[in-house]
Design a protein around this nucleic acid. Structure first.
Lengths: 331, 331
DNA sequence: GCTAATAATGTAAGCGCTTTCACAAATGTT
DNA sequence: AACATTTGTGAAAGCGCTTACATTATTAGC
């Protein structure tokens, strides 16, 4: 592989000049530039980005940490990030945190030692304090989590609105008894979604009923268990709003096992609009979570603040939207 | 951030010695080692991996190119790769090729200029010749595609066996008329799966019937269209084997729209065992594609051949297996 | 035509490591 | 006790770039 030195030799100029035409960092005479360009061509020169990074103290790479590399949700996010960054010649290094404190910290250490110019994090185990501290050390953008004190660095979804829209949709369809299957309440977004649910009820003049509430685990089995519990309880309901699509699937399957027709007997709503929601039977109504867009925005944040692409605008808060499919009907 | 120089100073030793204790590349006296280790601790020293890469001419990174970063299939693969590599301190740079020749070549160029120590490719647009040529330039391992002449570098699934198992399962359940919805025939794996289907039919003494064959596009809509076509054709069948899960979903939905019960009226089989197959109704029977395992194996190939972890074994061919769920029944 | 400014290019010092080579000290050998 | 090994350590030359600074060539101003 040719080096800058060989190029400079062939073009009959100095190293610095070659570097200049590569980076456009200073004026270079037209004729000189052409000589250099041609020499590059002839030698099939490709800059060594490692050396560039060392010399310029900028690795041109950004680290991305997700809970799991698989899973439709993270896939969309990563896809958005990759797209946005590669278009400007930056690369993304991925790592998985597995929703575990040690593992997340480990991965972050790893990315830092890799000299990433910035970190895009989707984490739920580490504390806010840790993130604030980290942000002093290296630029961080946090996805789907609001950390007070670094508001500008957070790209969030209006989860409260999502919860509201889900329940509001059911109310609008005439449902009176609406059960709610929540995610693990230690998560902030879960509590926000629930708050939205409560607000919708309140606006409709209906009280929140503990008997129609179950805390689930975001997994299908948890959805089945939650539905089982609701059904056993014997408190009537005609609609179930779930805090994510997986649990909604579980709830649907459970309802069906109990000979209930969806949506005739019970309407079901998910949250996230992950790919599986389009493959369930009936197709799941849900709240769209623009994960790809948010990933893209996180990348844009990095472009703007780290790679000085000043004209870029970043949007910190995203709005969810209602996706009506076949799992709900008018009561 | 502390550098090796500061560590050496604090420990009262030379740069070389510090480097040695970091890499274990040569013997260092017990006392000296401890001094160095302590100095590192005190300074919270972290090696600059960029500098390491430049000096050692080894970037400790491997590039991974997938068709799309999202999608359950690639997610599993990437997850396997990430897991295996991070455990030994290497990192993975991802890029998407979007199944387009230019885009794939572009991404490969990108990864090469990033000085990846090896490339793990899941590509379907570039030619075999291109890959052979590429492999001379930089180490390559190809996932889910057999390229003659670089057999050792390919991690494949026995697609023929998968196709065979799918149809064999239907035959074993007593089905006589088995329709087949294929993927795009220009893809090698698609043809292999089809070959397996034909072998199963032949072994059972049944002729392959063009009237029960449709070429699909691997998407849900394609599955719907294909099923529509089969149904319109009026040629009777009691089972449909599909070349992937998405089309199987489409086929199920279409059948249902035609008032057919699954599996009572028609049994359906998918291929890949992607996550959605567990969420369909009824749960889809399918052929398991161990994508995660294969990704992990590709990473292991890299560990073995590039990072000289000689004792590692790599397995080039994986076997698919039958996953029976609710979408099939005895005829 | 002479100086002052400006533009274009070269020189060389790093960036933070690895690694070869040289050398001193400790150990073993007879 | 003299020498040959082995072991531990340091000095210094890179790796392929970027960039501050120095230098030369060109143009403008009067």
């Amino acid at each position: 592989m040719a080096t800058i030195y060989q190029v400079s030799e062939r073009a009959g100029v100095s190293l610095a000049t070659v570097s200049r035409v590569m980076n456009g960092s200073a004026k270079v005479g037209e004729a000189t530039r052409n000589k250099v360009l041609q020499a590059m061509q002839e030698l099939n020169y490709r800059p060594n980005s490692i050396a560039q990074s060392l010399a310029s103290n900028c690795s041109n790479s950004v680290g991305m940490l997700v809970s799991e590399v698989h899973g439709p949700f993270f896939g969309e996010m990563m896809s958005g990030v990759e797209n946005e960054l590669r278009s400007v010649g930056k690369h993304v290094i991925i790592a998985a945190g597995h929703s575990d404190v040690e593992s997340e910290k480990d991965a972050i250490e790893f990315l830092i030692s890799r000299k990433c110019d910035a970190l895009i994090l989707h984490v739920d185990a580490v504390s806010d304090e840790y993130l604030l501290e980290l942000n002093k050390q290296t630029p961080v953008v946090v996805l789907n989590r609001h950390v007070a004190g670094m508001d500008e660095n957070c790209i969030c979804l209006n989860n409260e609105l999502g919860g509201y829209l889900a329940t509001k949709a059911m109310l609008d369809l005439g449902h009176q008894q609406i059960a709610y299957i929540s995610g693990p309440l230690f998560k902030l977004d879960v509590r926000e979604r629930l708050a939205g649910h409560k607000r919708a009820l309140q606006e409709a003049g209906r009280a929140f009923d503990e008997g129609l509430f179950v805390e689930g685990d975001f997994h299908e089995a948890g959805g089945v268990a939650a539905m089982e519990q609701l059904l056993k309880h014997k408190q009537p309901f005609s609609a179930v709003v779930c805090a994510n699509d997986e649990m909604a699937c579980g709830a649907m399957n459970c309802a069906r096992d109990h000979q209930l027709d969806i949506p005739a007997d019970v309407s079901i709503m998910g949250f996230d609009n992950v790919i599986i929601s389009r493959y369930t039977f009936p197709h799941l109504s849900t709240i769209d979570f623009p994960a790809g867009e948010m990933g893209r925005m996180a990348a844009r944040w990095v472009r703007k603040h780290i790679y000085q692409d000043d004209k870029l605008k970043v949007q910190n808060l995203f709005e969810p939207s209602l996706v009506l499919r076949d799992s709900v009907s008018r009561r």
